[in-house]
Structure formats: C-alpha cells, structure tokens
C-alpha cells in the first residue's frame, strides 16, 4: 500500500511533527519534573498532590496499595501517568463497582477537580504519559478524516468494529463502543493502553496519526444515516433479524388478508 506512506510527505507533516514532538516533550517534562520541585509557585501544585493523595487513600488504596504500589487484585500505578488516571477515573471505570471481568464505563464518581488532583498525585509518583488536553483540541485542524479511517481500520477496527461500535473479546471481555468517547479520552487510551487495550506508541502511530484517528472517530460519531435506520452498525446479523421479523412478517400478514374471504 504505497499510499499509506504519502502523508509522510504531506506539506504540514514536518512542522506538525516537530510541533507535537516539542509539545509532548514539554508536557511530559513539566508533569514529570515540576511536581517534585517545591518552588515558590508550586504551592498550589503541592496542595493538589496532597488533595489527590487524600482521595487516593480513601478511594483507591484498598486495592492499589497505600503507596500505589499495587496488590494482588490491582496493578501498580507508579509510572502510569496522569493520562491513565484521567482516563480511568474520568470515564467512571475506576473505582470499579465490582470485581467483574472488566471495568465498565459509567458515571464518574469524582468531580473533574478531584480527578485532576488524583492525576497530579499519581503523576508525582513517577513520570508517565501526561493528559494530552491541548494537543487533542487541534484534531479538527491537524487530522485527516480519510487517513484516520485507514489507520482506524488497521489498528482499531479489529476490536472496536468498523464503525467504532465495540466488539467482543475472549472470556467475556469486550472492546467498548467509542460513540461516547471524547477526543481527550481516545487520545489517553491510545497512549496508556487501558485494560485489554494495547499501547499505541508515538513512533508507531504518530501523534499526527492519532489526531487523524480521533477526527475519523468524531466523524463516525456524527455519521448520519445515509440509507435509513442504522440498526446498530454491527453488520449483517441485525439485517437478518429484521428481514425474518418485519420483512416476512409484513408479507405473511398481507398474505393472510389476501387469502381471507371478504364479508
């Protein structure tokens, strides 16, 4: 597939790549290094770490350990980074409601401020992926929908289905639907690899490509029904169900009317 290499030579590719590389380095550096420092301006940050630690001790430490070192039922959080916390807690997956196969997306337990504090606390433990807020805001400008679709089908569709509706994994696990995911959450998931999902490293799927993927997903979220009711966008199974119920049902109904004597 020669065409896939073409956006290497896209006229924005060089500058954009540089910009994002700088930005990513900058953010990572600031999150990783700024937190342990106790400069005069870092009073707010320190309090945020403390606040985050308090929330952590109340809500997370029973599984993840008092120092986030992990336990028999939960992984260590040292080095997972702020992005991971923001994704897991911000989408309501953590804290888990029960010990099921998989943490489900649900209503977040904590307010955005509390999530932010938790993220700062976990990020202060060791360097890890930072929350990519500002990078993602620009997906509309820097992403390419069609290329994003190509990347999505190569890297994501096998689990999340061709239209991002999600799909089954082994032993009761599943890849969730992406229809409610925000651009930031999608970005966080790609760089942190939550739960069953693998990590998509920046050298393998570049930040620019990630933005294209996000742009495609956003377009899929808003995809209008070009041919009528979408029926879940899961392929031929729902089509088969419809023809065996509504289709043949309507026609049998009419046949019964046709074969009944009029009065």
């Amino acid at each position: 597939m020669r065409h896939l290499s073409k956006y290497r030579r896209h006229r924005f590719a060089g500058p954009m790549l540089l910009l994002f590389a700088l930005f990513m380095i900058g953010t990572t550096y600031s999150v990783a290094n700024a937190t342990p420092k106790l400069s005069t301006n870092s009073f707010a940050k320190t309090t945020a770490i403390d606040e985050g630690r308090q929330i952590f001790l109340r809500g997370c430490s029973s599984c993840h350990g008092l120092n986030a070192e992990g336990g028999s039922i939960a992984p260590s959080l040292i080095g997972v980074g702020a992005a991971s916390v923001d994704f897991q807690v911000g989408t309501g997956r953590m804290p888990m409601a029960d010990m099921s196969q998989q943490a489900m997306r649900k209503k977040p337990l904590y307010t955005p401020e509390e999530v932010a504090a938790l993220a700062v606390y976990v990020a202060s433990l060791a360097p890890g992926p930072a929350i990519p807020t500002e990078a993602v805001v620009e997906y509309a400008r820097d992403g390419n929908t069609a290329e994003g679709g190509e990347l999505f089908r190569s890297n994501c569709a096998m689990c999340h289905n061709f239209a991002g509706q999600g799909g089954a994994l082994s032993r009761g696990k599943y890849a969730p639907s992406l229809m409610d995911s925000t651009p930031v959450q999608i970005y966080e998931a790609m760089i942190t690899g939550p739960q069953s999902m693998p990590v998509f490293s920046d050298k393998v799927v570049t930040p620019e490509e990630k933005l294209s993927i996000i742009k495609w997903i956003v377009s899929a979220q808003n995809e209008p029904n070009l041919g009528g009711a979408s029926m879940g966008r899961t392929g031929p199974v729902s089509e088969g169900l419809l023809i065996w119920t509504l289709g043949i049902g309507l026609l049998i109904g009419i046949s019964v009317w046709l074969a009944t004597k009029a009065r």
């Binding site: 089908r153 289905n161 089954a168 031929p236 199974v237 088969g240």
Partner: peptide, 14 residues
C-alpha cells in the same frame, strides 16, 4: 491486513 470485530456473513450463510 485489516479486519473488523464482529465479521459475519449474511443470514443464509450464518
């Protein structure tokens, strides 16, 4: 090299 989750045929091949 690509694939979608939930790849099924039409019902009469299902």
């Amino acid at each position: 090299a690509q694939i979608s989750a939930g790849s099924q045929p039409d019902w009469y091949m299902g």
